[in-house]
Design a protein around this nucleic acid. Structure first.
Length: 550
RNA sequence: UGUCCGAUAGUGUAAUGGUAACACUCCAGAUUUUGAUUCUGUCAUUCAAGGUUCGAAUCCUUGUCGGACAACCA
């Protein structure tokens, strides 16, 4: 880590601790997703933080599936999570599951019962809630709070054996019903769920709650820094209470502010809803803020890591501008994307003085940012396609594209001058006629002419039709969470537009190994829906557009 | 009417009692065969009031605003 770089508060803390001689074996962090959904860009922040801290300070990181609720969890999610973490470029020390520790956790619970620090409660969920009090009123003790240790031991064992129905009993920690912190009012440790678990099958019918699993798992793995988001802050006293009472390795919890991005939502529950109600086409829909969605959209691991680096880590609520993510991907793709010309919304451009049937092959660099990238050949002919928006009958001042009597450079081609144009019955321009200047050939221009504008184009006869999926922000408002009513009523109806574009022949060789810059239009990537007869491209992001009139 | 956390340009993040800065955005300009890239420049910041101090974004007090907390979710 460079001395120049600003340290976030966690790096600061760890750096001090290391200086003081703590953790001679190195630090250990963990990334602890629950396998009940797909990872999103918010998780990427956590992944970069947890893996990044270990990497920077010479430690290691475990990938731990926090699978203590069999009802919502599934191996489908386990697999996608592992794929996403790997794709982001991180390597875990080991993969573990909270369920690996169910036996130890059970023993821990027995230990607390024996210490008189836990008891079995027969109350219903409603009764427990009623006695819990509110944030401003203290709770009251359960009538079962003072059962004997022997009775608690017996009952808890029978809970495990399956003698009771779901919800008939719970195991609770005996802490403090009057605590101003609701989480200390005799929190639940175990509940009965006769449910199939994705790892342990039907072995268990009691499952530990988050609070009685997370910190203990951290401790078992000797996690030195258990980093989580701000909403767990009020759990910290309980996290420490269990570790203290259990007399086990004192892992410590640190909280940071979760990532929020504008024009999208970040809660797994809401994302699941968008998927289930078909507002998007699955978890990996390119409009989703999921890692798989961003990947399919064309984002690179490096761009996402760079984004996470740029947003920083702090403890205050934040909403990051989507534009920063776009900046990061453009910065990356500008250096690597293959350039190609594709017309999204074509009109014809016919060159009056170009010989009928003639085709010249014009060279164009694959990537001007990369001298090694070479060139591709682009056919030029009498009949071309150009972008509809690149011609105007009555242009505003400062419009330096094509207009009657106007002159432009056709990129990698020639300078042309507009002589006339045609419209259809609806008044839409269909064809533009131009004269070209043979001596203005790209790279060998002796014409002395200068054209302010440069247009992309394709030769009509050789153009290959491609499907373009044009994405825009998922929501039409910056913060759907803050709006009145159902967040789904703020979805952007134009977040996906499918258009047929026309590409220069070089794109026929496109593969998912490369990203493409469609000149003047944006960055695109080949979509997995492509078939042998139809190539489909996702627009990752537009190019920055400095033209205010556009 | 509770407890805890937070507040620095439009958005984020630094400055760790000693000159308030960096990135993105915005705006202006230069270069440009992508209105891209690149380069240069401009605008703009310590929630409020008291206190401690030679000196406060930083420490203290009070207030204001925002967030979290009353799932057999994590």
């Amino acid at each position: 880590m460079s001395a120049e770089k600003a340290h976030n508060f966690l790096e600061e803390i760890i750096s001090e601790e290391l200086k003081a001689g703590k953790f001679p074996e190195g630090i250990i962090t963990r990334f602890p997703p629950e396998p009940n959904g797909y990872l999103h860009i918010g998780h990427a922040k956590s992944i970069c933080l947890n893996f990044g801290l270990a990497k920077d300070f010479g430690g290691k990181t475990n990938l731990r599936f926090d699978d203590t609720n069999p009802v919502t969890e599934d191996t489908e999610y386990v697999e996608s999570i592992m794929e996403d973490v790997k794709w982001l470029g991180f390597e875990w020390s080991q993969v573990v599951y909270s369920s690996d520790y169910f036996e130890t956790l059970y023993e821990y619970a027995v230990k607390l019962i024996k210490k008189g620090k836990a008891y079995v409660d027969d109350s219903s969920a409603a009764e427990i809630a009623a006695l819990k009090g509110t944030p401003t009123e203290p709770g009251k003790p359960s009538p079962f709070r003072d059962r004997t240790i022997e009775e608690n031991l017996d009952l808890f064992e029978r809970m495990r054996k399956g003698e009771f129905a779901d919800s008939a009993k719970v195991l609770r920690a005996k802490v403090d019903m009057a605590s101003p912190n609701m989480h200390m009012r005799d929190p639940l440790m175990y509940r009965i769920k006769h449910a199939h678990h994705h790892r342990t099958g039907n072995k268990w019918c009691i499952y530990p709650m988050y609070d009685f699993a997370h910190g203990q798992c951290d401790s078992i793995e000797s996690i030195t820094h258990s980093v989580c988001t701000l909403e767990f802050e009020v759990h910290r006293p309980l996290y420490e209470w269990f570790i203290h009472e259990l007399e086990i390795y004192p892992s410590r919890q640190f909280e940071f502010a979760r990532l929020n991005l504008n024009y999208t939502v970040m809660s797994k529950r809401k994302l699941l809803q968008l998927v289930n109600e078909n507002h998007v086409n699955g978890w990996d829909d390119p409009r989703m803020p999921t890692i798989s969605g961003l990947r399919r959209r064309g984002f690179t691991p490096a761009s996402i890591r760079q984004f996470c680096e740029k947003i920083g880590v702090a403890r205050r609520e934040n909403i990051i501008d989507f534009g920063l993510l776009e900046f990061c991907i453009r910065e990356d793709l500008n250096k690597t994307a293959h350039r190609v010309m594709v017309v999204e919304d074509p009109i014809k451009l016919i060159i009056n003085n170009y010989p009928e049937g003639m085709v010249e092959m014009m060279p164009g660099e694959v990537n001007p940012e990369d001298a090694e990238s070479g060139t591709r050949m682009i056919p030029f002919s009498k009949e071309l396609l150009i972008e509809r928006e690149d011609f105007m009958e009555n242009p505003p001042k400062k419009y330096f594209r094509l207009f009657p009597e106007g002159m432009v450079r056709l990129k990698h081609g020639f300078i042309v001058k507009c002589t006339s144009f045609e419209k259809d019955v609806n008044g839409n321009v269909t064809t533009v006629y131009c004269d070209y200047f043979p001596e203005s050939r790209s790279g060998h221009d002796t014409s002395g002419l200068q054209a302010k504008g440069v247009l992309h184009w394709v030769s009509a006869a050789q153009a290959i039709p491609v499907e373009l999926r044009i994405y825009d922000r998922l929501f039409s408002v910056e913060n759907p969470n803050a709006e009145e009513g159902d967040f789904k009523s703020y979805l952007n109806n134009d977040s996906l537009k499918v258009v047929e574009g026309f590409a220069e022949p070089a794109l026929a060789n496109a593969s998912t190994d490369h990203r493409y810059q469609f000149l003047r239009k944006g960055y695109f990537c080949l979509d997995k829906d492509s078939t042998a007869s139809k190539m489909i491209f996702n627009r990752t992001v537009t190019l920055k557009d400095g033209w205010k009139n556009g």
